[in-house]
Design a protein around this nucleic acid. Sequence first.
DNA 1: CGCCTTTGACCTGCGC
DNA 2: GCGCAGGTCAAAGGCG
Length: 261
Amino acid sequence: MEEQEEGLPPLSDASSSWKSSANGASISIASLRDLCVGEGLDWGLPGGIGDGVPPAFDLPSWVTEEPRSSDAAAALAASSSSDERPGGKPAEKANTSAERVQKGTRQPRFAFMTKSEVDHLEDGYRWRKYGQKVVKNSPFPRSYYRCTHSKCNVKKRVERCSQDPSIVITTYEGQHCHHTVSASPRTDASPSQQLASSAPQICLPAMQFHRNPPVLPVIRPGQVIGPRYEERTSMAMERTSPAPTDEGLLDDVVPSGMRRT
DNA sequence: CGCCTTTGACCTGCGC
DNA sequence: GCGCAGGTCAAAGGCG
């Protein structure tokens, strides 16, 4: 993953975020490509959906479709090798590493950086927490969620940035096979009402970026992103001038009924 | 009662 | 082969 440093844009203008009108949480998006660098976190933000930030480099193909390298394949395979083992019984797991890799590489993954005090961000879908793990070099546990939709195997991981506890990192993996949250019997509110009443909110099932992936400038480790972004945005999920290519994207990922305009 | 979170155990991959 | 780390399972308990 050494080549990731090539062609990276200056950091100063590389931002894209939304700010929650409810609690001021600012939301950014990063690529898993950046998440995978581990210790030397290079947090990417999609300039393509920022406020006028020009695309600086193209996403590697593996971010959205397949790994482009063995490292990426391994990373993806390792994290998603059990995607298709309902019940998690060993006998149901892929029998060979090749099979596991093949299964594991099909899930597009994207990450959001969110400046928020709450860990689990309402994004329009319903999630069930299935695990929590303390990760190395981070004082904060990582939580694992799965979409509650019966036929949807989208997962997401939520963790706090060890360098800035105010930042929540949400990594989506997979692609929703349904459009939006199915109203829970437990809640009286409609999905849009749930969205409207909960915050911070992100309405970007990021895996749908695979059709129109954003480009990702990078934030250096330790760089504080929150306040600066908050200065740049005013409303949650509201963008005054989406990039032309994002209009369709926004339409795709944020059902019109869910959008707050 | 159904859904959710919590949490310890287990599995797998990887590096040494 | 062993240990570590990440990811997942599943039982137990809580909550509305």
